[in-house]
Write a protein that binds this DNA or RNA. Structure first.
Lengths: 294, 294
DNA sequence: AGGGTCCATCAGCATTGCTTATAGCAGATA
DNA sequence: TATCTGCTATAAGCAATGCTGATGGACCCT
């Protein structure tokens, strides 16, 4: 029959802890119950999912762990979405956004929406690109705003967390961020293909894997910054730690001041795209979603 | 706690039948058991999912139905994948492919793989693009081959059915398929933007929604063919029922004979792309997957 | 009014899932 | 080597769950 998500949750906890007893403590069961649950799951599938002494996932168990995370997330998402669909209109809405998603256009639309709905209360939280979907799916945010690098009008590829609506919000040209005194800083435009062997800054704001997807191999990592503060990224670029792509509105042009310059990207044809995503929307949130969409 | 997939399965059946009794008959339970299962699910979520007399989903219930399908599929996929990961090598492999995915390149690679593994037995089944993932995920096929229209090197957007590996197999230029006596049939190349208002044939092989995604509004449906036989599509085009896009290898060029002509597509820059997808692979299937990949 | 269909509810019974107790194993230490 | 500790597996007991069968009420049709 269908795999029991309850057993799956136990399995994930045991694998994470590498211990039946520790998982039992976390889940609020006895070690014996955990042992029986794992035995039940193994009996259901007809194979061992964990070795014992040490308690480690077998290859099949590792495979199941890859499925378990998204599966359990989707179960939580289904519950959250159903509850949301049945919820009464609310005036307090939670927005989860990636740092670059809340640009001037979005902020302006948000202001207009709030002017149109004076009782609207908005909480805005920043999160990573691959967390937006999960936060919305699980009901921890009502609306999500995600950004990324894409071809014009090409929807972003976000992790799938279940049936959700996405809408394009805004697109903006991209610029190569360079130190102010870089030899290329005065150029009118740049091509990514000519920068394949330059030194690049790896950041969540512009993952180099994305550039490799779009252009091909290359883009060596001179430095990695794991945070997502735009200001920090700009300063790291300005200090010569590596190049990155950012929306043109973030960077001063060649004639202005600041540690870094933005030179427009001419090829390939790419934009910084912002998208809105949401599940079921009660009337109050639907108005905001409409206002934010393009 | 976590929603019970067993209850979810019952809910889906009841909603489909619009009747507790009919669902009970299908699932092999009594009406009473079904009534209690639905009551348990509604109690868990704290709201009504179905109206009674008539038995129809409430708005919240409809929302849950959107989640239920993919969720239950993923549960089946997880089981199938785990079993596959633990399976012994097999020589009998099942391939699920969309009609246009098995082109000469793929067929040639398959032949070479079979020459290298003389004991290999391959069953090839044709299916729709949005079924490939599900067939592979659920363990009804070991490998999937899907095709679609994409920008060069851009992965296809297939429905997500869980953790699966995809690999590019082959890309080929696209051509606009026209009747042999069409005024544009002798052209050296065509632009999609110039054909926005032409009459188009809607087929699963070239969904017009995809063209609208890529280019914008337009592409009126002169006729719809719901089957996926390439030969039929070519003949419908030749008889003037509407235009479509097909890989250049499928269509005769302007100088050859046949009911339809293929004029290369010059803009936007698009290709016919074939991708391989699979879950866990035992050694036997891994060799075939490697041979099929680019 | 009578009959049939359908869903809700109750009672009874088998199965499931938990706790407690115990056994066995492995590793560390004196 | 003997002892202790920590850990997992297993058995027994009990409460909860999930099913069947019976019954009642509502609705529809003749």
């Amino acid at each position: 029959m269908l795999m029991d998500p309850h057993l799956l949750t136990t399995f994930v906890a045991v694998a994470r802890h590498g211990s039946f007893s520790a998982a039992a403590a976390e889940l609020g069961y006895t070690q014996s119950a955990i042992s029986q649950q794992i035995a039940a799951l193994e009996a259901d599938l007809g194979l061992a999912l964990l070795s014992r002494r040490p308690v480690e996932p077998t290859p099949a168990g590792r495979r199941l762990l890859e499925h378990a995370g998204p599966l359990l997330l989707r179960l939580r998402a289904a519950r959250a979405d159903v509850l949301r669909a049945a919820a009464a209109p609310r005036h307090r809405l939670r927005l989860a956004a990636t740092p670059l998603a809340v640009n001037a256009v979005v902020a302006g639309r948000l202001a207009r929406a709030r002017a149109a709905q004076p009782r609207l209360e908005v909480t805005l939280a920043t999160c990573a690109r691959d967390q937006v979907g999960a936060l919305v799916a699980e009901g921890q945010a009502d609306l999500g705003l995600a950004d990324g690098i894409a071809a014009p009008s090409d929807p972003l590829r976000l992790p799938d967390t279940g049936p959700m609506t996405t809408a394009g919000v805004n697109e903006e040209d991209l610029a190569v961020a360079l130190p102010a005194d870089h030899p290329l800083a005065g150029r009118a435009a740049l091509r990514l293909e000519d920068l394949v062997d330059a030194r690049w800054l790896q950041t969540p704001l512009c993952p180099l894997a994305r550039l490799r997807d779009l252009v091909g191999d290359g883009f060596p990592v001179a430095m990695e910054y794991q945070g997502d503060d735009v200001h920090t990224v700009v300063n790291l670029v300005g200090a010569g730690h590596g190049l990155t792509l950012l929306p043109v509105s973030v960077l001063p042009a060649a004639s202005a001041s600041g540690p870094a310059r933005g030179v427009p990207l001419a090829s390939p044809r790419l934009v910084h795209r912002v998208e809105l995503l949401h599940g079921a929307l009660p009337p109050g949130a639907a108005d905001l979603a409409r206002a934010l969409s393009a």
